[in-house]
Design a protein around this nucleic acid. Sequence first.
DNA 1: ACCTGAACACCGTTCAAGT
DNA 2: ACCTGAACACCGTTCAAGT
Lengths: 186, 186
Amino acid sequence: MALSRADWTRAALLAIAEGGTGAVAVEPLASRLGATKGSFYWHFRDRRELVAEALAVWEREATDAIIARLEGVSDPVERLREVLSAAMEDEDDADGSIDAALLASTHDPVVAPVVQRVQQKRLAFLEACFRDMGLPRGEARDRARIGYSIYLGWFRQLQAGGRTDASARERAAYQRVAIDLLTRPR
Amino acid sequence: MALSRADWTRAALLAIAEGGTGAVAVEPLASRLGATKGSFYWHFRDRRELVAEALAVWEREATDAIIARLEGVSDPVERLREVLSAAMEDEDDADGSIDAALLASTHDPVVAPVVQRVQQKRLAFLEACFRDMGLPRGEARDRARIGYSIYLGWFRQLQAGGRTDASARERAAYQRVAIDLLTRPR
DNA sequence: ACCTGAACACCGTTCAAGT
DNA sequence: ACCTGAACACCGTTCAAGT
């Protein structure tokens, strides 16, 4: 039966999770879906457009949705704690792998602006947490940057550190130290 | 005149700095060097071998050399401060770009083990700093991980955040907050 | 020893032709 | 509307042949 744009996009997100945007290859995707390359070019202008659509889906689901959900938590320290664990917990499932893969695909000119936008949103969220804790704007921004770095570093060290086996205990320890450092008064 | 392995390796490192390992392409490199692809295959078995050799050079110069130099600094807080600023300061020059580019090339199976080894060395260095400050082993390891994340995050936010213009002031602020957070007693 | 040039495979892209 | 199949360009790789 006929394929849809969504079918190709879903396949592309799987490929991204496995090997970054470099792994989004039209021909292999076509065989996986039981079609030919020609079919792909009926749905999309080119490979670039497919990657862009996959990224748009990821941006909505992995950032916009989470932020919207947590904005209801009134205690800023609690909000920080929840966003960290929400983000770190799906390390195994699709969203976590995609996040890590895209952070390793920033040389792709299609990826760069999306990742940049996503980072702005996440930094703004964190900065608001620290302002709500009573920190002045400059310090809140600095801590937001550091906090986001700590989040990124978790994936980075999972990924390139060869530790696919990070236990729940290890993750909890990392998180605890991070929150302790970040929420300590000056 | 005849080209050497070193000529090709140097060209490869330039390409890596510009676009990650994905940008190491034999044919374009050959034209840049005024030779043909055939010439390349006399010096190297394949593209993979070229990338591996370039990474070996980077590992020696960007990690082993810096660690060796700083191991002479006896005050651990001072050592931390110096390694952070040494690492962050060449953000513009070749080494900094290569570092950032490789962190975004970890899907390359040639890159992954090298980056992993480099990270182990850097984490061990940081952990030693914290142990020298009197922290117990577990806590030293946790803080080393967080500290390395903060370092990685700096490049990440430079790179994908679109801020190529990070001023010396901004860098200093990031560094100061990082050191403050990390060296604060529990 | 060092390199060229032609050849082939693989994937992105186009397009005429099919249902 | 949706897809096939053949064609071409680009880059990795091989290799016989040149100096």
